[in-house]
């Protein structure tokens, strides 16, 4: 029999992730590992983890990593990449990290066109701290700090980070994907690969925003969280390429 699939060696086999059932962090991390191996750049990789569930896998990833203070991943990555331009530096951040406490660092790194890659996990909620409202929480969606649901009069509206960064001139590549079905998983992998390749080619700031679920804090089981993504999240956060300068260059 031919072996047609094997797990990525970038994930240490004897370690446990700690992710909840139905969580898509494990899917995205697997995709990142596969891409690093396919591009043959594991030995250049340095990952800057955000705070929260984003960091739960630091003990099982087999490549270089550090953890930034909450929100500061893009600043840490800036220093790391600028002082070591040959490495492949990427951040792995959630929505509270990237779009709330780290908004200044995220926007400024994008605006400088830092030659880094951002993997931005948007599940509309704070995970590790227990389901508090995020900048990307949907209108009406309940959170532990918004028990009656997000009310625009009080909380404003969900923030669309791809579209916001698209107002800046410097970013090279911005795409929003999801992992709620096999087709979207494949598109996510292609997007990550492209974002990494951009950095290797010195193109500048690339971000992949991945719309995922949080069954635990959404109060849904794994399967129903997939439906929630499809029915509620994706209408608010439409998938697709928001910006691709390589198309303009071609």
């Amino acid at each position: 029999m031919n072996k047609i699939y094997t797990r990525t060696k970038t994930i240490q086999e004897d370690k446990v992730s700690g992710f909840c059932p139905g969580c898509m962090h494990s899917t995205v991390i697997k995709l990142i590992g596969e891409v690093l191996e396919e591009l043959n750049v594991v030995d250049k990789a340095a990952c800057v983890l955000g705070i929260g569930c984003c960091g739960l896998h630091m003990d099982y990833m087999a490549y270089d990593n550090t953890t930034a203070p909450h929100g500061r991943a893009c600043a840490v990555a800036t220093g790391m990449k600028r002082s070591n331009p040959d490495s492949l530096v990427f951040t792995y951040q959630g929505d509270g990290d990237f779009a709330s406490i780290g908004l200044a660092e995220s926007m400024s790194a994008a605006n400088r066109g830092e030659n880094i890659t951002v993997i931005f996990i948007n599940n509309g909620i704070y995970g590790m701290t227990g389901g508090q409202m995020a900048p990307t929480t949907l209108v009406g969606m309940k959170a532990s700090t918004a028990p009656k649901g997000r009310d625009p009069k009080e909380h404003g509206y969900p923030m669309h980070m791809c579209e916001i960064l698209n107002q800046l001139t410097a970013p090279y590549y911005l795409e929003r994907t999801s992992c709620n079905n096999p087709a979207n998983v494949n598109k996510t992998k292609a997007a990550i690969k492209k974002a990494f390749q951009n950095q290797l080619d010195g193109k500048g700031f690339s971000m992949v925003e991945i719309v995922t679920g949080c069954p635990t804090n959404w109060g849904l089981d794994a399967l129903r969280s997939l439906d929630f993504i499809e029915e509620k999240m994706l209408p608010e956060f439409p998938l697709g390429v928001i910006r691709d300068r390589s198309k303009e260059e071609a």
Binding site: P69, A75, V76, K81, R82, S83
Partner: peptide, 9 residues
């Protein structure tokens, strides 16, 4: 934090 990153490298 940029210094944290650069020194980490």
């Amino acid at each position: 934090n940029m210094v944290y990153g650069a020194a980490s490298a």
